[in-house]
Design a protein around this nucleic acid. Structure first.
Lengths: 212, 212
DNA sequence: CCCAAAATGGGTCGCCCGCCCTATGGTTGG
DNA sequence: CCAACCATAGGGCGGGCGACCCATTTTGGG
């Protein structure tokens, strides 16, 4: 599980991105800041694995805030205008990554995992290849071993279908097979019933179809 | 339930805001666009209640896209730099609202509800007062009539606590009272068991404490 | 001050759910 | 080629859960 703090003065991006990243099963946002000074306090308190930092912020810019930190977690600068000039400043301030706000969310997630593991995302000529290596969410052992059919079942549970009969008819299998799959799910996720399964399914992002 | 489309060329804002708004029980994002042309196609297809439109976008700006539409849903322009000049252009293009990207998420939600109901958010001197009138999410009759204790129970369910005994001990009441509360919840939300209750609880945003 | 709603608690009953054991055919990778 | 795994399916059993009945006390708004 990777912990992240986000610093950005635009509330909509800040709160939106927080929600989006929290929706990724192996990433948690542990704090947010609206300017550089808040970021300094935040990082001093909760020690996150990675920082996401915007450049333009009131009171103290992201670049300046980074430059003031010692012994700080790896920082990814997320900015709107990706000029070489700003890239150079970000690198000088100690950032390990430099991404546009037009970066797709999965790429950002991969960048967070890469940065948390000590990768340098600045000097890379083929950034895409590095990101691809960290594209898969790091799930706990149980969730990673779920089979296709088990994920389908969880997806249905997450959409509010709970009765064995309905699940069986939807998947065109017998009620007994549904119960067998559920038992496997309970064991893998260390839970005991379909209410907990529904919660886990949503946490794992298995609602809304999922990867089919 | 208010349906919304969002147009913004910054993926992180677009995907983040989508997640955040979908997390609000009475708001659903039915489509997103990365430029003005996509927005035109999108609005022609799915008819949303409200459009959220950024100004600076490739191919076709938000302002230009709005100006080309006829018979379009109310549009709220969401921009980074709130100059009077851009505000004037937005109004001329037919926007009913003009908000900064620094607007807090609850304010944006209130603005969406207000716009969907035909309010004009441009000419208002006391915007805050208008937003306050639309601050409460419009819940379906069932969810709105939930009592405090029932919300507490749902919150626990959403956090993965499903056994009657655990719920009873956590709330310091008898197991029978837990079952009575659950029965009330089932009736109000038109559901039948605690798996569905957990799904609904999360959808209603009752996980993470909720309004205490 | 009163009445309605909320919160608490009890009983019963039948069914479904979770748990344990077994089994078979298909696919795949070592 | 065989072991491992997946998907499929059945039986039995006990207990928890949902449905329907009820009662008492507290709380709060009109």
């Amino acid at each position: 599980m990777f912990t992240v703090v986000i610093a950005d003065d635009h509330s909509l991006l800040l709160e939106g991105l927080t929600q989006a990243l929290d929706g990724i099963p192996d990433i948690t946002v542990v704090g947010t800041a609206k300017d550089g000074k808040e970021l300094l306090e935040l990082v001093a308190g909760a020690k996150p694995d990675v920082m996401l930092v915007d450049i333009e912020m009131p009171r103290l810019s992201g670049i300046s805030a980074l430059a003031r930190m010692e012994d700080a977690p790896p920082a990814i600068v997320v900015t709107m205008h990706t000029s070489d000039e700003q890239r150079r400043k970000a690198e000088a301030a100690g950032a390990v990554g430099f991404l546009s706000k037009s970066t797709p969310l999965p790429d950002l997630a991969a960048a967070i995992r890469a940065a948390a593991r000590g990768e340098d995302l600045m000097d890379v000529t083929n950034l895409a290849a590095v990101l691809d290596e960290h594209r898969d969410p790091v799930l706990d052992a149980g969730a990673a071993s779920l089979t296709g059919r088990e994920r389908e079942l969880l997806s249905l549970l997450a959409s509010g279908m709970s009765r064995t009969e309905d699940l069986a008819e939807t998947l065109f299998i017998s009620q007994k097979t549904v119960k067998n799959h559920l038992a496997s799910i309970y064991e893998k996720l260390a839970i005991t019933d379909r209410a907990q399964a529904a919660v886990e399914a949503i946490r794992l992002g298995l609602h809304r179809g999922g990867p089919d």
